[in-house]
Nucleic acid binder design. Sequence first.
DNA 1: AATAAATCAATCATGTTGATTAATACCGGA
DNA 2: TCCGGTATTAATCAACATGATTGATTTATT
Lengths: 373, 373
Amino acid sequence: MASDSANDSPARDLSRNERLILSLIRRHGPLARAALAQRTGLSAQAITNLTRKLISEGFLDPGKVVRGKVGQPSTPLALAPDGAWFLGLKLGRRLIELALVDFTGSVRMHRQEVCPFAHPDRVISFARQGIDTLAASLPAASRMRITGLGIAAPFRLWDWGDEMAPWRGRDLQAELARDLPFPVFLENDASTACAAELVFGRAALPADFLHLYIAHFAGGGVVLDGRLRLGPRRNAGALGSLPMPDGRQLLELASVATLEARLGHPLPPDDAGWEVPDAIEAEWADEAGRALAFAAMSATALLDLSLVVLDGAVPAATRARLAEATRRALAAMPAAGIDRPRIVEGSLGRSARMLGAAALPLSHFFQPDGKLG
Amino acid sequence: MASDSANDSPARDLSRNERLILSLIRRHGPLARAALAQRTGLSAQAITNLTRKLISEGFLDPGKVVRGKVGQPSTPLALAPDGAWFLGLKLGRRLIELALVDFTGSVRMHRQEVCPFAHPDRVISFARQGIDTLAASLPAASRMRITGLGIAAPFRLWDWGDEMAPWRGRDLQAELARDLPFPVFLENDASTACAAELVFGRAALPADFLHLYIAHFAGGGVVLDGRLRLGPRRNAGALGSLPMPDGRQLLELASVATLEARLGHPLPPDDAGWEVPDAIEAEWADEAGRALAFAAMSATALLDLSLVVLDGAVPAATRARLAEATRRALAAMPAAGIDRPRIVEGSLGRSARMLGAAALPLSHFFQPDGKLG
DNA sequence: AATAAATCAATCATGTTGATTAATACCGGA
DNA sequence: TCCGGTATTAATCAACATGATTGATTTATT
């Protein structure tokens, strides 16, 4: 994940326990020093020292003193919104998006471009120009605190047809890193969707789960011990390549591409104008749900999971229908020796991949192990 | 994994870096202090201090000084064979085994009992008596250094038929721990087989792989980042429950039980007297190989693996045939988007589960994270 | 003389513990 | 009902412990 240039960061490297404090506050919301001591297992004194530094360096804001309880009032510490800034670039076939995200995970600025097909030169100029504009709009003090750019891109773009052939041999990460003053990270877009759920997601998730993301293709993420496993070649969660009972692979059954094939025409890259006849969507959901249930059971047997999070670049109603179809299919599968996992919907939908892209530099500099999650 | 009584160990807890040093020497053989400094990333001074303590406490032996190279001669440090002792109890349907294993992983004593079916009371008395006898045969100094007992047992024994019903409600770990002066650990036998390969195995294994173990049932282990993942409910690698293309589960296709079913009679618990007509074994290997190949591809897509280790409680020739059948089946599977994993045979065979049982206390006290691997 | 292994001595980073201060709620007695 | 003592909790101060580092030094060899 880390680019080779990942060392030229503006801020000093935070220690493990400083990162731990930040990630606890990120997950649980503002916490008092005493609460941090309890959750980290560190002494109150250590927390005092660490938070003093984090506050003075602008990563934490002391909130309003909380009175009304027995004992000395506590001061909750919150993430300072402009403690650090992150850029997220999401690359799709027809839609390119760029976002500037603050330390709390809020998208503070956003631009996008729709094009018939994304050519590398076009993506790069869109990114360069967009980054310049977004950065320029920040006050100088904050501009200095942009810590990195994350890119969410499908792997093997050039396999998507002749239009995408120009991508072969291109290294978007390196080309953009060359003239940016901060490191650039790149991951598979389904991985970043999962990362977003982990880092910014609203729901209280268990430490181990499988994340399924249904976009033009289907992809996934495997979370173990609270961390996203990318695999030695960053190809973990290649759900699309999962073998299916009928001898095909999952990507041939469960993706927006298969829905478009049933429909006979492409669907728009946003909810507006997403119109699919009910019968067609229902049939598609049925077939896709069976495939996803099969994937869910495979992962459960292999990794002892109990939860599957299902999300995608589809309208909420479609996602709900797919989740329901998956639950039905799951109930029909044999499960001797294991428990069927629970299926829940993700909380981020279409924006998951872009948010996850921004989460790449965030994780590198601010998560406890420099890893996702 | 850790029993509740896992704290009453004879020796003090070793620090993380002490454990790291021991595990490096366990994996690579005797190493000089300079080599340890390089591999751990610690300073030479730190290594001097840490190894001094490890030697004085009897965990490391300084070997013969190595001369003949430029510079001051180096002294390789080796594991002291009687630095610690471990007991491994392997529980099967018809064969119960107990081993006393030294710090280097050598089985120093071994006893076993064959019985029509393993009744819990019988297992407990065999274990108690065996442990007493083995411990008594050690000199007092070494007896003090027995650090724990590991048990390798199939999960859900009581589902194996009426004979095994007495196991329901029994807690072997707790019952044995009650009157032993060291902690007791228990894991699924397929997990321990994987652990043995990881801790004691001869081959240089990558950090991520899938381990398949074919015994009466089929089980597995998932190794990520060099560590065995047991899952939140210790049920990871439940290969047998993996859904298969035909709607069945893997355990119905690939196990010694399915071979016995084809054969019409049970096979012996050791290589002697293992006689299977060639045609029957070939057909079985074909079917099982297809199932294992399916499992291998599922795991590869999910976790980005590139190696599958295949082992089992079968003769080497049978294992080789099964591996070959798996490779053939693998080649026939669709693999768009991923690479097919390599299939290699394990190095421990029938003894894997018992050795892995002994590896449980070893890992708890001497592996860097107290985890397997 | 160059090289490599290992150690010595001093120091630093990062945590701990125990005593101390601060601000509040709770509660019994006037 | 008010009032002051006491328990409670948050946070800090000061001293210290642990486990590492660095730079100089010693040793044995080619």
